[in-house]
């Protein structure tokens, strides 16, 4: 019973990780992230009874409180409403190719996690480790191809969700101070990134972080161009 419910939570977790790849509006990405965090909390609570680890009850409650309530609230407080309804106009990679890459990442996670769970007796880790690893890798994908700031923030938080999803199964008795610190850490991430997004929005006038590309070695050619045009002006004079 516990085991099959945990499988269900894992399935929904993986689906939300897939969903985050699609260039939704930021608000929809955030809603997907909340659902994903709820799956993580559900898995923690289920495993608390399945593994007899009472610490996981605290972990599940903390996850619910921070990731599905506080973080959306924090992000909405720090970043203006307009940014949330903005949709990316030019996705770097189209949706079908993204999903193919995502599928390859999931296969890779099962391939990597296989030898690790083969050594242990039948446990929840067989479900949680590959799915957590897949969540981690899929979370990194929006960081590389999404252009907007908020989906990238959610990507980072989703990566941590992936790591913790594996964590509830493989490290259920981690010291509670570490769990508390991790929950605090996630809040600080949301706060810092939210404030930074707001500053970028105020100063640069966009949250299309992919357009922030002045710091490249390409500036070499810029400098050369400047020099050439200077030389031309000099010659003209």
């Amino acid at each position: 019973m516990v085991s099959s419910l945990n499988d269900l939570a894992g399935g929904v977790f993986l689906l939300t990780a897939f969903g985050l790849i699609v260039p939704w509006q930021a608000a929809q990405s955030l809603r997907l992230f909340v659902v994903q965090s709820m799956c993580l909390a559900a898995s923690a609570l289920l495993l608390a009874s399945g593994l007899g680890a009472p610490d996981l009850i605290a972990v599940g409650a903390l996850t619910l409180a921070t990731k599905s309530l506080l973080i959306p609230w924090l992000l909405r407080r720090t970043v203006s409403r307009e940014i949330y309804t903005r949709r990316e106009l030019s996705p770097v990679v189209n949706v079908p190719s993204s999903l193919l890459v995502a599928l390859a990442l999931v296969v890779l996670s099962y391939f990597v996690a296989g030898p690790l769970v083969a050594a242990v007796p039948r446990t929840f880790a067989r479900v949680n480790l590959p799915i957590g690893l897949a969540g981690l890798l899929l979370g990194a994908y929006p960081l590389l191809v999404r252009r907007e700031a908020i989906p990238q923030v959610i990507g980072i938080l989703a990566m941590e969700n992936g790591a913790f999803y594996a964590g509830v199964a493989i490290a259920p008795d981690l010291p509670l101070i570490a769990e508390l610190a991790a929950a605090f850490d996630v809040l600080v991430i949301a706060l810092v990134l939210g404030l930074l997004t707001r500053t970028i929005h105020e100063r640069v006038g966009t949250t299309d972080v992919a357009s922030l590309a002045t710091l490249r070695e390409i500036r070499v050619s810029g400098a050369i161009l400047r020099k050439e045009s200077g030389a031309r002006e000099g010659a003209a004079r």
Binding site: G132, L136, A140, I156, M159, E160, G162, A163, A166, G167
Partner: peptide
């Protein structure tokens, strides 16, 4: 932070 999330799974393992 992306790197730290990857390292987190390593620490949990």
């Amino acid at each position: 932070l992306m790197g730290a999330a990857i390292a987190l799974l390593g620490f949990l393992l």
